[in-house]
């Protein structure tokens, strides 16, 4: 497809700088590499970091999937997808297994990723120590000295106050036994998917001007104590009201009129694929 824009929106100089930062990030797993984040046609804090990575790595042969909080069809996902497609002409897909680049906000897809795929995560707050230290230079020193008492203390205080760690999302992780990293606001449910992932994971924070990465087959451990082990969200006894699955991350849906609570797959393409498969099987069985 011929486009009327420069390929992938960026000038080549910008791509080069971001590409160099990505390579350093891959070489130092979990370390936040600073980069000169560009002005994008979407507001900072709306996925500009992920978008800049996607635009810098994407080529004509790629197949792109963009999800926002598990959905392929939310406004943010659609806008980013349109921007990338308009400026590159690449094919887009909803199917996780078909994509070569998956840009995501706040979720890692349910379908396991393979070694030919790259997951790009949008990050609003890349610094896991920001709540304990406001000064950037000081957090850089803390990282350099592997001084993570603050991160541990935060979890300890949660246990003291509430009897358990209360991180809803963005539960800090230890990468390659060296850096404590914010995994982006993915639910705790997705943290284990980063550990020894087959796919390369790139994380971009546009507003905070940081790029970091988790290479494939890298140890990623969620911070936890021996007597308070890390636990993912539990959906035991609950299942998706549409496709009936129960071993995925579910959204709680509250009916405003009746107050009735039901659950639904958060990963919409996974749910849709299961529904389509069920329908196909039904047609084959009933009408063959």
């Amino acid at each position: 497809m011929k486009t009327n824009h420069h390929f992938a929106f960026f000038d080549e100089g910008s791509k080069k700088e971001i590409r160099r930062a990505i390579l350093k990030a891959v070489a130092i797993p979990g370390y936040q590499v600073p980069f000169s984040s560009r002005e994008m046609p979407i507001a900072r804090g709306w996925g500009t970091g992920g978008l800049q990575i996607t635009l810098s790595i994407i080529g004509c042969e790629d197949v792109l999937k963009v999800i926002d909080q598990g959905s392929d069809e939310s406004v943010n996902a659609v806008s980013i997808k349109k921007l990338v497609q308009t400026t590159t002409g690449v094919e887009v897909t909803d199917l996780t297994q078909e994509a070569t680049i998956i840009q995501s906000r706040h979720r890692i897809p349910e379908v396991p990723l393979d070694s030919n795929q790259i997951l790009v995560l949008q990050v609003p707050a890349p610094e896991p120590l920001r709540d304990v230290e406001a000064r950037e230079y000081m957090t850089k020193i803390l990282h350099s000295e592997e001084e993570y008492s603050g991160a541990w203390l935060q979890l300890f205080e949660q246990i003291m106050k509430f009897g358990r760690t209360t991180t809803g999302a963005d539960h800090p992780v230890y990468v390659n036994h060296r850096y404590v990293m914010a995994p982006s606001p993915i639910p705790r449910f997705d943290n284990p998917k980063m550990h020894q992932s087959e796919a390369l994971i790139l994380l971009g924070a546009g507003r905070e001007k940081k790029i970091y990465a988790v290479p494939p087959f890298t140890d990623v451990r969620s911070l936890a104590f021996d007597d308070y082990p890390f636990k993912v969200e539990s959906f035991s006894g609950k299942q998706c009201r549409l496709c009936g699955t129960s071993d995925v991350f579910l959204d709680e849906v509250l009916a405003a009129d009746t107050g009735e609570v039901s659950y639904q797959c958060n990963d919409t393409s996974y749910c849709m694929e299961r529904l389509n498969q069920a329908e196909k099987a039904e047609v084959e069985n009933n009408y063959a």
Partner: peptide
């Protein structure tokens, strides 16, 4: 872009 992706793949 093609060369970069190959370098990235080999670096990762």
């Amino acid at each position: 872009q093609h060369v970069f992706r190959k370098i990235l793949d080999s670096m990762a």
